[in-house]
Simulated scan of single mutants.
Amino acid sequence: MDLWEVDQIVKDAAARGDKVVNLSHRGLTIMTGEIGKLKNVRKLSLNNNKLLVSPSELTMLPRLEELVLDNNQLTMLPSGIGGISTLLYLSVCHNPLGVLPAEIGSLSRLMQLWLVDCQLESLPAEVGFLTNLRKLSLRNNHLCALPKEFVNLTNITWLCLAKNNFRNLTLDLNSLSKLTYLDLNHNHFSEVPGSVLDLPALTILLMRGNQVWEVPDDVILDLARLTKFDLRDNQIIVKPDHWKGLEYILLGTSAPIRSPSPPPFISSSHRLITGDEHFTDDFPESHSSD
């Protein structure tokens, strides 16, 4: 699709006052400046294009709540992205970002942040300002540590750190008192991180594909509140006799699982705020497959 056609689509959407605009799968390499005229848009999809640079006009959209930029060729987030104060949901998966700008911390209303496969090696300290964040996915990056400010994310309920380079979690995580789901699959853990034992609301802990060879009984007792503890594809493969009744602990070898298609973003306050969904180990973390 050429730029003139996109211009026309955007102009028509602006004239109608559209709240949802989908410009995905258009083969776009650049974006028209007309996008800044979408003053009523709340959901904007620019995913699955060939964008090298995000349009700076995104910061001119006063009602934007959801922005999807997955599967482009972006090496940086839009300049001035911290100025999109209305943003609740941001997904930039499968882009070679390399780094996150410090201004990410200005998105104070953000509730979901998806950064799967972005070649990140570290996170800026400013992520600690995202205190309304409920869901954060950092799957398939190059992270080995979290900034100390991460403990300020006291409203987070769902966290994926799978497919990174973590060997331990050294932060005191007990301030993450609402975290119920933690995905540590496919890292380099040789034991259950002690900081995980301090998470009072945790019910699902995934540690598949690490290097764990033993889980002491006192750790099992500390994790008794779990409803799922996935230790498949580790060094420990057989349950000790006194674990036989602990069906929530999964050992052995896992079969390959094809991840489902990602669910649409639902902007209702109930879904975002309460996080009542029941998640399996790869849902909704389906922006990338295992």
Rank of each mutant, 00 (worst) to 15 (best):
L143W: 03
D117F: 08
S108M: 08
I237E: 09
L3F: 00
M207G: 08
E5R: 07
L87W: 01
L61I: 01
A201V: 06
G128V: 04
K178G: 10
A14L: 00
E214G: 07
K11L: 11
L182Q: 03
E103H: 03
V116T: 12
L64E: 01
N164M: 06
E57D: 14
L58T: 02
R258P: 08
K19Y: 01
S269L: 13
W243G: 08
C144G: 04
T59F: 00
Y181N: 11
I266V: 15
Q211V: 13
V151R: 10
L221M: 13
I257P: 05
S79I: 12
F265T: 14
I156D: 03
G83S: 15
G275C: 08
E277A: 15
L69N: 03
K50G: 08
L23K: 02
E5K: 06
V20P: 07
A14F: 00
G80A: 04
H188K: 15
L205K: 00
V53P: 00
E121D: 12
D233W: 11
N168L: 08
W114L: 14
H186Q: 15
W213I: 11
W4A: 15
L223W: 02
I9G: 03
S137K: 05
A145F: 03
H270M: 09
C160D: 15
L77W: 03
M207L: 14
L138W: 03
I204R: 14
L153K: 04
